[in-house]
Amino acid sequence: MIDVLYFAWVRERIGLPKEQIETQAATVADLVTELIAREDRYAAAFADLTALRVAVDQELSDFTAPLAGVREVAFFPPMTGG
């Protein structure tokens, strides 16, 4: 089980901030492919991966990152702090 978190417009498109997902996906990209296949709202959120950033266990990462041993993955748009 992996906790998957969504922030900002990704959260709005998918319609929830967090969910637990049972997955055998080897990488973040594989997890995204599984999610897109689920429902249209995921396909809408993940339509353009260049517009998204990913954090793995609360560290900025990328879509090629392996998921073995990972507890938490988060998807969000580029950050706008400051």
Partner: peptide, 10 residues
């Protein structure tokens, strides 16, 4: 912190 801290403004 503008582009590496996880904040989003609406």
């Amino acid at each position: 912190l503008k582009s590496r801290a996880p904040f989003w403004k609406k």
